[in-house]
């Protein structure tokens, strides 16, 4: 069965997006991509050393993988827009993950500035994937602003704490007519699986793989978990029941009366 995720005109077979930060060596990246099956990878423009022959992260990213530069370090819309333009001018393509953070304690995103940056960049032809706290009104504004997807956090970034914001993400999935990509907080494959079962379009994660004792093995586990979660969503699980079904239901008499 064909089940592709289409963002910015590109059809993706894999619904796992991965990151590039925090690895002990960027040389791990090709194998992470291969074992996880991920086709989208995010990279902070601030980290790309375009002039380096030995330490340029881009040299480890295969050409067929979709590059998703991000605006890490931006403290407001203006800085995010500048970073995005620099990324495109440097040949990193027109996808951009907007990350505007003015809170260095919890690293929570700034919704208002994110909306402003999205508006500007979408009008300049970028495929914009904004990272937000799961706030319905912010998400709706992003739809208006021209976002290509909405990426709510499952828990504060880098915490590996799992889907703490599950109920809010569920509302976004129900109400927002764009792909919902759960980004940040996912710590275990079971978290990713759960997000996909709920109907998330994809999951983006980095710390959970990069900080694992065996990153490659963890990458593979996440690839499978995301796939399993997606399949379960498509299969439509039966409703969970709190109690066993009564064998003599209260309305059973209606059937008996109709038969008479």
């Amino acid at each position: 069965m064909e089940d592709q995720l289409v963002i910015g005109g590109r059809a993706l077979d894999s619904r796992l997006f991965v990151g590039t930060g925090k690895y002990s060596s960027d040389a791990l990246i090709p194998e992470v991509l291969e074992k996880s099956g991920a086709q989208v990878i995010t990279v902070a423009l601030r980290r790309i050393d375009f002039e380096s022959e030995t330490d340029n992260v881009l040299q480890y990213i295969p050409k067929d993988v979709q590059l998703l530069p991000n605006t890490s370090g931006a403290r407001n819309a203006q800085e995010a827009v500048r970073i995005a333009r620099l990324a495109r001018a440097a040949g990193c393509g027109n996808w951009i993950k907007i990350e505007v953070i003015s809170d260095n304690k919890y690293l929570l995103p700034d919704g208002y500035e994110t909306i402003k940056a999205t508006e500007t960049l979408a009008s300049e032809g970028f495929v914009v994937l904004p990272y937000i706290s799961p706030d319905l009104m912010v998400a709706k504004s992003l739809v208006e602003a021209g976002a290509a997807a909405v990426m709510p956090l499952g828990a504060p970034i880098g915490t590996n704490r799992g889907l703490k914001t599950k109920e809010l993400i569920r509302i976004l999935i129900d109400e927002i007519p764009l792909p919902i990509v759960v980004d940040a907080g996912i710590g275990k494959p079971s978290d990713a699986c759960q997000a996909m079962e709920m109907g998330a379009a994809a999951c983006l994660l980095n710390t959970a793989i990069a900080s694992a004792n065996a990153p490659i093995l963890m990458a593979e586990a996440f690839g499978r978990a995301v796939k399993a979660g997606r399949q379960a969503y498509l299969a439509g699980p039966g409703a969970a029941e709190a109690y066993a079904q009564a064998s003599s239901p209260l309305t059973g008499f209606l059937e008996a009366m109709n038969d008479e």
């Binding site: 690895y23 002990s24 060596s25 960027d26 423009l45 601030r46 980290r47 790309i48 050393d49 380096s52 330490d55 370090g73 800085e79 500048r82 970073i83 620099l86």
Partner: peptide
Amino acid sequence: ILGLGYQPVFKDWQTL
């Protein structure tokens, strides 16, 4: 740094 299993990072900001 590489020998200790860490990544030496040369660039972590981009003058805007």
